[in-house]
């Protein structure tokens, strides 16, 4: 199956010389949820803006649903829904009119049933006659999402959708994303919140300095890069790591009551068996042991730091 979004050598250099996106080859499969992670100014929004038509590419090509975003922009854009990062809404418009406006803009005829469905799912139905400027910040964000869904997009871009939103909205949004995914909608979201990517994405891309550093299946990524830590709690504190254990990469906690051992689950052997044997040979009594897998956040920080170094 061809990718629903493909870019080939897509770049953006702004007028002031800023290279916002280095040549990018990216394939996004239909129906997947792709999370793009990266610090501010990494190029995430530039990429989305180019695909949606807000920013002109400097070079390269991009296709959405097989349609070139420049030469067949109508076909390409008709498939796209965009929820921008900033809240941008006409303040005096009623919620219902705002959603209808977007549907019309995307060339679709009136469909009140669909709009009602969208508004109900986003808990906006009761507010449909309210003016936008009478709504709270969270509600305004819901309106932005409702507008983006008003024309049944096949590809939905969510640019930092949960930045500064309350727990309710975040939960609703994740539910909505799950629903859309069931309907086969492809979702590309940018986020600062690693837990968001971890919770809902199928694949994760990391962008920094306009470059896609990594793009991988989330599980595979976490397994591949996920180092595990074995924490060994001792019954009696020790002053230093016993000499017989110097062959292991061990960290002694300050209070001398626990040892941390880092290992790679993908390695030939984890070394745990040998370590445990050596621990008992050294006469250390164990109170407890537990293991912990590093989160996406740690992976992300490592990657971005490595880049900056």
């Amino acid at each position: 199956m061809p990718a629903i979004v493909e870019t080939r050598g897509l770049t953006k250099v702004y007028g002031d010389g800023t290279e916002a996106l280095k040549p990018l080859d990216l394939d996004i499969e239909e129906g997947e949820i792709l999370a793009l992670l990266g610090p501010n100014g990494a190029g995430k929004t530039t990429l989305i803006s180019m695909l949606c038509g807000l920013v002109s590419p400097s070079s390269g090509q991009a296709r959405v649903g097989g349609h070139d975003i420049i030469t067949r922009y109508r076909d390409a854009r008709a498939l796209i829904g965009l929820v921008p990062q900033e809240i941008a809404l006409e303040p005096f418009q009623k919620v219902w009119d705002a959603v209808r406006f977007t549907r019309g803009l995307f060339g679709q005829g009136r469909d009140d049933a669909h709009l009602e469905d969208v508004l109900r799912k986003l808990s906006l139905w009761d507010k449909r006659r309210s003016k936008v400027n009478e709504l709270s910040g969270g509600m305004k964000r819901r309106v932005l999402i409702a507008k983006a869904l008003s024309h049944n997009p096949r590809v939905l871009f969510l640019d930092e959708p949960t930045a500064g939103v309350d727990v309710d909205l975040r939960r609703d949004m994740w539910n909505m994303v799950a629903d859309l995914r069931r309907d086969g909608v492809t979702i590309i979201l940018t986020t600062h919140y690693i837990e968001e990517a971890e919770a809902i994405a199928d694949r994760v891309g990391v962008i920094n300095h306009g470059e896609l550093l990594l793009l991988e299946d989330k599980q595979a990524l976490m397994t591949r890069l996920g180092r595990k830590t074995l924490r060994i709690e001792l019954r009696r504190p020790v002053e230093a790591v016993p000499g017989g254990l110097s062959g292991y990469d061990l960290e002694l906690a300050e209070d001398g009551r626990s040892l941390s051992y880092h290992y790679d689950t993908q390695g030939e052997g984890t070394g745990i068996t040998a370590l445990l044997q050596d621990l008992s040979r050294e006469g250390l009594a164990l109170r407890d042991i537990h293991t912990r897998q590093s989160s996406l956040e740690e992976i992300f920080v490592d990657l971005v730091k490595g880049e900056d170094a």
Partner: peptide
Amino acid sequence: IGTVYELLSAP
């Protein structure tokens, strides 16, 4: 107010 994004992203 920034709503021009809609015009630019529409077909």
